[in-house]
Simulated scan of single mutants.
Amino acid sequence: MNPDVEADIKDLSATLSSIEAVMDLDALRAAVADLETQATRPDLWDDQEKAQKVTSQLSHKQGELRRVTGLRSRLDDLPLLYELAEEAEDAEAQADADNDRAKLREEIASLEVRTLLSGEYDERNALVTIRAEAGGVDAADFAEMLLRMYSRWAERHQYGVEVFDTSYAEEAGIKSATFRVTAPYAYGTLSVEQGTHRLVRISPFDNQGRRQTSFAGVEVVPVVEQTDHVEIDEKDLRVDVYRSSGPGGQGVNTTDSAVRLTHIPTGIVVSCQNERSQLQNKATAMNVLQAKLLERRRQEEQAKMDALKDSGSSWGNQMRSYVLHPYQMVKDLRTEHEVGNPSAVLDGEIDDFLEAGIRWRKQSQQA
């Protein structure tokens, strides 16, 4: 075998070994066995919420175990593929082995990023809010472009997306939108998207065809669970009900079923209009509010830790630029990762940005 190929396989094996150690495969197998036992209990579905949690966790952990053991099996087989190709002097088989090695390198790197997601809430689903900021109608249009970008990203990975509330702008685009992404490690993965996104382009809304810079803000918080115990006193809440509306004022429901909650002590406002009843909308809005209060508490705790470490750095402000004119580029201002195809990025191809952001954050935390 070529010495360079042999060294590369050895390097990949060492990386995978460190991933296996972090994932603790023995503990993972034990967790799978325990969840399989729970899933076969005849009374499992007496508590539907618990049953869904058990089956979801089982599916996720089985998938993780299959993923890492599959990579190890393929990597162990790779030297044999090269050996057979060399013995047969088969150039096509050699090329196939090279392709397998390149795919393994990519998949192992992706799995390595997953092991960097070790925060308290990283495994959870994500609650994402996008808001149009400076830039008028262009900003509202940009906010809608970002909503589509994340929706397409989730669709590519077959992750669930549920939009809780959308506030449409008058001329085009959206003022804001809040949605949940249901996926393993959705919060840990998407949390690096938090901050201000910047778009530079020739404005389609300017009849003089001038270049416009607009901004949209992205907020990402973990979805709360029953164990979080975020207490909300009813007297701290103002509840407003109103009629749901779609683009151009088109009615979604004919009754005043939409609900807006204002948490008076913090000023946090959340809305929900996607359910059919006022009661359901209020329950969903309460979950969103709890998530935001939980994130506020986490940020306050993090601020205390940062003060103790005398860390003045912040990664939650302007974080990515999307330039459509006078050249084509998307660049992350923290990681320096950039690509020259904004159309693909805005169509949901953001995995490289997510991975770069996760690695950058981990390095920043260790600094």
Rank of each mutant, 00 (worst) to 15 (best):
4 D>V: 06
12 L>H: 12
13 S>K: 12
27 A>H: 03
35 L>T: 06
50 K>A: 14
53 K>Q: 15
63 G>P: 10
80 L>E: 14
88 A>T: 12
88 A>L: 14
96 D>M: 09
100 D>A: 11
103 K>R: 14
108 I>S: 02
113 V>R: 00
113 V>Q: 03
114 R>G: 11
116 L>H: 07
117 L>Q: 04
129 T>L: 03
132 A>R: 04
134 A>Q: 13
136 G>A: 02
148 R>S: 04
156 R>P: 00
157 H>V: 06
170 E>R: 03
184 P>I: 04
185 Y>N: 10
190 L>N: 07
191 S>P: 00
199 L>A: 07
201 R>M: 01
202 I>Y: 01
205 F>A: 03
209 G>I: 06
214 S>T: 08
225 E>K: 08
228 D>W: 13
230 V>Q: 08
241 V>K: 12
243 R>Q: 09
252 V>W: 02
261 L>E: 02
266 T>I: 07
269 V>K: 00
278 Q>M: 11
288 V>I: 14
298 R>I: 00
300 E>F: 09
302 Q>T: 12
305 M>S: 14
305 M>G: 12
306 D>Y: 05
311 S>G: 11
317 N>F: 10
325 H>I: 00
326 P>L: 02
327 Y>R: 01
328 Q>R: 13
334 R>P: 01
338 E>G: 13
340 G>C: 09
345 V>K: 01
357 G>Y: 08
360 W>G: 12
363 Q>R: 15
